[in-house]
């Protein structure tokens, strides 16, 4: 007993299989090209001076971007200080007090739409709120812009983490006389901490590469910033500035900075992923 497919239909199937394979290969090509150029061009310029020295003026050799590394860390720290409490508190409300309600759906809708708003809009918002109020472009404004970008990611992962804590844990705590606050702060949050930490790290990794909002809030600074109410250098803006520069030394530094950021993001993504998987099986 056998069944044969008409040759035309068979050929069509084979053709489509080749086409789909081709799509996958075609798309894998740019990724490998990006990784390869970032690694090869980044490694060739990597040196200790890169981490300690200041950006070189045109036509000068050497130099580094110590100020941009410190600046990126400063802006990210400000962003984390704002977005982590906001994201976690909102997640607690949605998961612990309003689970399954219309309001929870409304918050989810708002967060989904917020995460689709272009990052440059966050920059404009931070400009209107912080720069216009304080009268200066600053690290603080950059931090506020990145914080709004991070809030949706922090909230979503924190909510998932809280919801994965079994209901019996809460019932047990309430049963021995704990209040809601005690239950959440001492039982539920610690249990959900690993996935919350993963979410915060992922959101920081995403914010570390954001350029557009910093371009119009933190600007750039060729030296070390003296406070958070001053323009500050950051790695992504340095890449943007040096990518458009006609000097080879500056272009090389742009590649080294790209290597640092991409390495950071890849490590964080891979670690977060394997971590999430372990959680899942545990």
């Amino acid at each position: 007993m056998s069944y044969t497919v008409a040759p035309m239909r068979k050929a069509f199937g084979a053709f489509m299989t080749v086409l789909a394979t081709g799509c996958a290969l075609l798309l894998a090509l740019p990724l490998f090209s990006i990784l390869w150029t970032v690694i090869s061009r980044g490694m060739s310029g990597l040196s200790l001076a890169v981490f300690t020295e200041l950006p070189p003026p045109p036509l000068m050799q050497g130099g580094g971007f110590g100020n941009a590394i410190l600046g990126s860390l400063t802006v990210l720290a400000i962003a984390a200080l704002i977005s982590v409490p906001f994201g976690i508190m909102a997640a607690i409300f949605v998961s612990e007090f309003a689970r399954g309600t219309k309001f929870a759906n409304f918050v989810r809708f708002g967060i989904n739409v917020l995460s689709g708003v272009p990052s440059i809009i966050m920059g404009l918002f931070a400009y209107a709120v912080v720069v216009l109020t304080t009268g200066t472009f600053s690290a603080l404004a950059g931090g506020v812009a990145l914080a709004i970008l991070m809030i949706p990611i922090v909230e979503r992962t924190a909510e998932e983490g809280l919801k994965s804590v079994p209901m019996e844990t809460r019932q047990g705590a309430i049963g021995v006389g704990a209040t809601n606050f005690q239950t959440i702060s001492q039982i539920v949050l610690p249990a959900a901490l690993p996935s919350i930490a993963t979410g915060v790290t992922l959101s920081l990794a995403r914010a570390a590469g954001e350029t557009a909002p910093l371009l119009i809030t933190a600007l750039f600074n060729n030296f070390y910033a003296q406070g958070i109410l001053q323009p500050i250098a950051t790695l992504p803006v340095l890449i943007y500035n040096f990518a458009g520069a006609p000097y080879k030394n500056q272009q090389d530094l742009a590649w080294v900075a790209s290597l640092l950021i991409v390495t950071l993001i890849l490590i964080v993504s891979i670690v977060a992923r394997s971590f999430a998987r372990r959680q899942h099986f545990g």
């Binding site: 798309l27 990724l31 090209s33 990794a205 995403r206 590469g209 890449i239 950021i261 993001i265």
Partner: peptide, 13 residues
């Protein structure tokens, strides 16, 4: 991972 690479690196590339 393609989605995680920062856009400024895409621009540079």
């Amino acid at each position: 991972l393609l989605a995680a690479v920062p856009s400024v690196v895409y621009g540079l590339w």
